[in-house]
Computed example of a mutant assay.
Amino acid sequence: MPKDLILYTTLGCTLCEKAKAEIWPLLEQFQLRLREVDIADDSQLLDRFETRIPLVGLGDPGDVCGWPFDRQQLREWLLRRLPEL
């Protein structure tokens, strides 16, 4: 079963659309499924990430890859966290 790659986002985030273009090509390689989380729905995430989105993570909000990133930077970040692939 694929693990979730979480995109921390919010409504109207234009940078988030750019981030998705970097994310999509890596999902299959790392056997990941993209799950978008709207930070506006969680006050703790909103406090933490309000001025930092888009960010991606694997479930730990303390360990995220923040924008700006390109496909290679995200790939390296994922390789450090998913070494079995």
Rank of each mutant, 00 (worst) to 15 (best):
A40H: 13
G57M: 06
F69M: 05
W67G: 09
L27C: 04
E22Y: 06
W67S: 09
T10A: 11
F69Q: 12
L34P: 04
F69I: 07
E28Y: 06
I23D: 13
R35Q: 11
L78P: 03
L15Y: 12
I23R: 10
Y8S: 07
G12Q: 07
T51L: 09
W24G: 00
W77G: 11
L7M: 05
C13K: 05
E17K: 13
Q72I: 08
E76S: 06
V37H: 02
P68H: 10
C16G: 15
L55K: 01
L7T: 01
L5F: 08
A40E: 14
E36M: 06
P83H: 08
P61V: 15
I39K: 07
F69D: 13
K18V: 02
L26R: 01
D4W: 00
L55N: 06
R52C: 03
L15G: 04
Q31H: 14
T10Y: 03
R71V: 03
D41Y: 00
D38V: 01
E50F: 10
E76I: 00
R48V: 11
G62A: 14
L5G: 08
P68N: 10
L82T: 03
L7H: 04
F49S: 10
W67V: 07
P2V: 13
D42S: 12
Q31A: 14
L45P: 12
G57R: 06
V56R: 01
Q29M: 01
F69N: 09
C16P: 01
A21C: 03
I39L: 11
D4V: 03
L11H: 12
I39F: 09
R33L: 06
P2K: 13
I39T: 13
T10W: 01
Y8G: 04
E36A: 09
I23G: 10
R35N: 03
R35A: 04
P68G: 11
L46F: 12
L74R: 11
D41C: 02
A19D: 08
D38H: 13
Q73P: 00
L78H: 01
L85R: 10
L7V: 01
C13M: 08
G62F: 07
K3N: 12
F30H: 11
C65I: 00
V56E: 02
E84G: 09
F69T: 12
P2N: 14
T51V: 10
F30C: 03
P2H: 13
R80W: 00
M1N: 10
I23F: 12
R81K: 02
Q44W: 08
